Amino acid sequence: MDLRQITPTYSVTPQIEPSDIATLAAMGVKTLICNRPDMENPPALQAAVMQAEAEAHGIDFIYNPFQGHTMSQDHVDEQADALADAEGPVVGYCASGNRCTVVWAFGVAGHVPVDEIIAIGTSHGYPFEQLRPALEAAAARNTQG
C-alpha cells in the first residue's frame, strides 16, 4: 500500500487489496472512500467486497466512483462531505491516487490557496499545474455567497 498524506486527516493510495483494510484499521482509519468504478476492477476488488471488509473492521465505506472525464460537482460535494463528516482519518483510493487527490482539490479550492493545492498534488506525484484554471474557477465559485 502506497499511502500519500494529503492533509493531516486525509491520505490517498492506488488500488488496495481487501487484506490492506486490516492495516488501515490498525492505523486508526475511520473512513475509506472508493473513487474507482467497479468496471475498472476484477470482482475481488469491487466495491461490495471492499465495503464488507471495511465494515468488518469498523471502517465507514463510501463509494464515490468516477472516471477523470466524468467527475462532477456531485462527486466533489460527496467527497467533501465525507471528509467533513469523518470521525477520524480518511483514506481515498482509486487506480493511482490521482482521482482521489483531484476531487479533494476541487472541494477545498477557495478554502486552500490554489498554489498550495497544486504544490500538494505535485509533491505526491500528481502534477496539477494544468488544473490551475479550473481550480481558480472552482475557488471563485466556492467563495461566493
Rank of each mutant, 00 (worst) to 15 (best):
L45P: 01
A25H: 11
M27W: 11
S96T: 15
C100F: 02
R132H: 07
Y93V: 01
A119S: 14
A82C: 10
T9W: 03
G68I: 02
T7R: 12
V102N: 01
A84I: 05
P8R: 12
L131A: 10
D85E: 14
C34P: 01
L24Y: 03
T143E: 12
N41I: 03
D2H: 13
G58A: 08
Y126A: 06
D81L: 07
R141K: 15
W104Y: 10
Y63V: 02
P37E: 04
T13E: 03
D77M: 05
A26C: 06
D77P: 01
A86Y: 03
C94E: 05
V102C: 04
N35A: 10
D74K: 09
V90K: 00
E87V: 07
Y126P: 03
T9D: 13
V112T: 15
I117H: 01
P113H: 08
N35R: 09
N142Q: 10
S72P: 04
G88N: 10
G58C: 09
A86Q: 05
P133W: 05
N35L: 13
P43N: 03
V103C: 01
A25M: 11
I59G: 00
A44G: 08
V29A: 03
P18F: 08
L131Q: 14
R36W: 08
V29I: 15
A138D: 00
A47T: 12
S72N: 07
N41D: 12
R132K: 12
I59S: 00
A137P: 05
N41P: 01
A52M: 03
G88R: 09
I33P: 00
I59P: 00
L135V: 09
A137C: 05
L3Q: 08
Q144V: 10
P14G: 15
P89T: 12
G88Y: 09
G68W: 10
N35G: 07
N142H: 13
I21D: 02
D20L: 12
M71W: 05
A109S: 12
K30N: 11
P8K: 13
G121S: 11
A109E: 04
A44Q: 15
E87D: 15
Q5N: 11
Q5Y: 09
N41S: 12
T13W: 03
P113E: 14
V103G: 00
G125N: 09
N98T: 15
R36V: 06
F61A: 06
C100N: 07
L83K: 04
T122F: 01
L45I: 06
P8Q: 14
M50A: 07
S11M: 12
A48D: 12
C100L: 04
T143V: 13
V103F: 01
H57E: 06
V102G: 01
I118F: 07
N98W: 07
D2M: 11
A25W: 08
R132C: 06
Q5L: 11
S72M: 04
T23H: 09
L83P: 02
D74Q: 14
A84M: 06
